[in-house]
Amino acid sequence: MSHRTFTHLDALESEAIHIMREVAAECTNPALLFSGGKDSIVLLRLAEKAFRPGRFPFPLLHIDTEHNFPEVIEFRDRRVKELGERLIVRSMENSIKQGRVVLRSENQSRNPFQSITLLDAIAEFRFDACIGGARRDEEKARAKERIFSFRDEFGQWDPKNQRPELWSLYNTRTHPGENMRVFPISNWTELDVWEYIEREQLQVPSIYFAHWREVIPRDAGLLPVSHLVQPKEGEHVEKVMVRFRTVGDMSCTCPVASDAKSVSEIIAETAMTRITERGATRMDDQASEAAMELRKKEGYF
């Protein structure tokens, strides 16, 4: 028998494929959340490995804040076309028009409101499981979340009352109206994701690589200038070589100063980085120590 080395990436990949197949087999009507970001790009490759030569046994779903970077949306559509799979887009603009989302100001961050549009989409299509790209290393509350994360009929996560998860025997059962969020890459770190992108030679949107961009230094971050973000009184605009570590809402997703122009340079930088991914780039998570936990309890991814 040949002994190929079984690396941590092989182990994480095999675990994720196993999880996706469990979802397909045991859930009635699942969907895979695809945003065009790097974590969900990895999910798509894992789904290809799990189900080819067959088609995906679920549609792709994007909850669009309409505050997305244009490069990401363009990438999303190109990738979906390549795969030949079905993409459902549900836009927050609709939730706003219907009065389901009420914003204080036109330009405020839409991240927290994605939950409402997501829950509406879950109700509309009667999804009983949504596969997402969240990772436990991202944030404290995520570190305690199950791979199969049960949500009640209001989409809420109850951290104190989670189902025990043993071996790889996942309890996928839900009553009508309830649903599961399933996180196949729970055990991956940011570095694992980039290593996998390199190994599988996956394409990612251009804004992940270093480029010149106009930014406004605000609080501890660099806010990208766009139609949503303009300098306030006393602020100034700088042109800096940056890349994005996450690609969320343009109004609150900050790039980091970087010269990394290729995946291997990003890996080198990530291996040495001294600031966690969300701490560096998401203003909404810095709002309070429990910001993510509170959003998750309300039905966030």
């Binding site: 080395t5 941590h8 182990a11």
Partner: peptide, 13 residues
């Protein structure tokens, strides 16, 4: 590649 330089791609879990 950088990953091989770090030896990370051979790491076990």
């Amino acid at each position: 590649s950088v990953v091989e330089n770090f030896g990370l791609n051979r790491a076990e879990l």
